[in-house]
């Protein structure tokens, strides 16, 4: 089938709080090539719970002998990062979907400017490798707490030299975003991934400098937010599914054996949009896909991110 059967080949904990994991095909051979900016949805069997979380691929897309991800231990983990940090060991078996991409480079770009913050560096590992291979001009601006805690910092500088600039906050360095976007040639594209505030600031700096929206790209991955438990009634399968505090609606559906559509699991792609037949209460929309008008209509819910509070929620599933 299309699921990838993977084995943990190496774990690197050199940077505190960040675990690099190398995954190789269980039966040898090569994995599919992937596109820069792609992510992998990893399925993790943690006791009775099957978790599926998306992680950006941070290895070189042309290295098909294995995939690498880098996972930061979340301060308030829903389980995924804690599992990968505390319980995963070399030799463990995992499975994953095929790589998918919601953050691909615009190949028309004459120049590619990347602004990363913290663990948001991961998609840019693959992007810089690809841009370098294709001979496309690029520059990477990487904000971090310190040189010592910045994942991949040494590797990036060794690979790309002056095209990479580090901004360790403990040295008092901050990205001068206005300067970054202030003197770029026509046809430049901007990509940003990191904390919300950094992404918003980078996009705003570009807009303030007159950049068009078509040149702006942000990776809007988020973990599903926790919230009060609620129950969803599934009209077609005739069952009720209870969604726990640290569980997403999608995860609850999957745990109940319901084949629910999904792709990115981060509220970005729209694949999991599900028709709401009845909602006595309020849908808590946490996705980036539905427009304000569609949210107001209240007839669809994105199961990977959104929650519900109220008496009764009936879904067309």
């Amino acid at each position: 089938m299309t699921e990838l059967a993977l084995r943990v080949a190496a774990i690197d904990d050199a940077i505190p709080g960040i675990r690099r994991i190398r995954l190789v095909p269980r039966t040898g051979g090569l994995l599919p090539a992937f596109s820069a900016g792609a992510h992998l949805v990893l399925a993790m069997r943690d006791g009775p719970t099957l978790r599926r979380n998306p992680y950006s691929l941070c290895s070189d897309p042309e290295d098909r002998s294995g995939y690498e991800i880098a996972v930061r231990r979340a301060e308030r983990s829903r389980g995924g990062s804690a599992f990968l940090h505390d319980r995963l060991a070399v030799g463990d078996l995992l499975s994953a979907g095929q790589p998918a991409n919601l953050f691909q480079p615009d190949w028309r770009g004459r120049r590619h400017v990347m602004v990363a913050g913290g663990i948001g560096i991961t998609p840019f590992m693959a992007m810089t490798a690809t841009f370098d291979r294709l001979g496309l001009p690029f520059e990477l601006h990487y904000a971090c707490r310190s040189r010592a805690t910045a994942a991949f910092a040494d590797l990036l500088v060794a690979r790309h030299g002056a095209r990479v600039t580090l901004y360790p906050s403990d040295e008092g360095r901050r990205i001068d975003l206005a300067a970054v976007v202030g003197d770029q040639p026509l046809g430049t594209h901007l990509y940003t991934c990191g904390p919300d505030a950094l992404m918003a600031a980078a996009l705003q700096a570009a807009r303030d400098a007159g950049w068009p929206d078509q040149a702006l790209h942000a990776e809007r991955f988020e973990a599903p937010p926790p919230g009060d438990p609620f129950t969803a009634t599934l009209a077609r399968s005739g069952i009720e599914v209870t969604v726990g505090r640290d569980q997403s609606l999608l995860e609850a559906l999957e745990a109940a054996g319901v084949a629910a559509p999904c792709l990115c699991r981060g509220g970005a792609c729209g694949e999991c949009a599900t028709r709401v037949i009845e909602a006595r209460g309020t849908i808590l929309h946490n996705d980036h896909f539905l427009s304000p008008g569609e949210r107001a209509a209240g007839d669809r819910i994105m199961t990977c991110m959104s929650r519900f509070t109220g008496d009764r929620l009936v879904l067309d599933l």
């Binding site: 299309t2 992937f34 095929q98 998918a100 792709l263 792609c269």
Partner: peptide, 11 residues
């Protein structure tokens, strides 16, 4: 179009 934008690798 909506369907194809989410077309998956290998499928």
């Amino acid at each position: 179009l909506k369907f194809l934008l989410n077309l998956r690798l290998g499928q």
